[in-house]
């Protein structure tokens, strides 16, 4: 069962299971865990309970992530899984997904995001997203992904899997869901800031733009220069513009600069300038980055 095929294994439910296991000393009888998550109760003389498949899908998603291991009738928290806080678990999930390649079924989560970033780079903006239908978006993504199948025998991403995909991206701090019937928007500020913090960037130390981007590409392989991003651009036949960042990364760096999290340094004629994608923002290029207050976001 993959992360996206476990449509009922939402991030908050997986977190519920993982935190329960952590609170129970790392292991719990499967039936007892099911009793916690699906206790059933009476309301207005009606029994309220989910079908057992819901819990099974949560276990499926958590297992697919590698956060939980099934050991006979026991469920165990994987030794490396950080379940100390929700944020720490999100980081762990992010790290885990970022290391997966196309051969692994959950690799699709960030590969599809890499495609989103690459396509936005090709389009010059993320505006195309809101103009796509769910089917159109899923079809385009599937077409651009490396050939593989999900363990449900279906496509790696399709219209049905899109809501799950979006939920996991929201939990990873890569997109924002909009109010009401409006759609969603890629916004990676929080993840970038988080990864910079985790990378141990020293405050007020200037890093050349290229080194900074190289660091990001390692931690965020689905963005500019990262292996997933490069593969995505190759598959959609989009030639990266040399020394110019994609709209999604550009927006994040501008936002973090505006928030005082980092400072993008610009000198008039610096030869090694990195250009940001076209925008109405005054900041159009930078040659170095200084970490300022990474804990602000």
């Amino acid at each position: 069962m993959s992360l996206l095929s476990s449509t009922q294994g939402t991030p908050e439910r997986v977190w519920s299971l993982v935190s329960l296991l952590a609170d129970s000393g790392g292991a719990l009888d499967r039936a007892e865990a099911a009793g916690w998550l699906n206790p059933g109760f009476t309301r207005d003389n009606q029994e309220v309970a989910e079908k057992p498949t819901a819990f099974q899908q949560v276990v499926g998603a958590a297992s697919s992530l590698g956060a939980v291991e099934a050991d006979g009738s026991m469920l165990r928290l994987s030794p490396g899984c950080d379940a100390s806080t929700n944020a720490a678990f999100s980081d762990w999930v992010h790290d885990r997904l970022a290391t997966l390649d196309s051969a692994e079924k959950d690799g699709v989560v960030l590969e599809a995001f890499a495609w989103l970033a690459a396509k936005s780079d090709a389009e010059g903006s993320v505006g195309w997203i809101s103009q796509s239908t769910a089917d159109g978006f899923a079809d385009a993504a599937e077409q651009a992904l490396p050939d593989a199948a999900d363990d449900d025998g279906d496509r790696r991403i399709n219209r049905t899997k899109l809501p799950s995909w979006r939920r996991w991206l929201i939990s990873l701090g890569l997109i924002v869901s909009f109010p009401g019937a409006l759609q969603w928007h890629p916004l990676i500020d929080r993840r970038v800031a988080r990864e910079l913090t985790r990378a141990g960037l020293r405050q007020n130390e200037e890093i050349p733009a290229v080194a900074f981007l190289s660091l990001l590409a390692k931690r965020l392989p689905y963005l500019d220069g990262g292996p997933m991003f490069v593969e995505a651009t190759r598959r959609i036949k989009h030639a990266e513009r040399p020394r110019q960042l994609s709209p999604i990364l550009s927006a994040a760096l501008r936002n973090l600069h505006d928030d005082g999290v980092i400072e993008l340094k610009l000198l008039g004629d610096a030869a090694d300038l990195i250009r940001l994608s076209q925008d109405t923002h005054r900041l159009q290029a930078f040659y170095a980055v200084v970490a300022k207050s990474l804990d602000v976001v």
């Binding site: 505006g127 909009f178 916004l187 709209p247 109405t280």
Partner: peptide
């Protein structure tokens, strides 16, 4: 598209 991107970015930033 351009307006969608601009407004999407502004709303997303506001929400953050």
């Amino acid at each position: 598209s351009g307006a969608a991107a601009f407004n999407g970015q502004a709303l997303a930033l506001m929400m953050r």
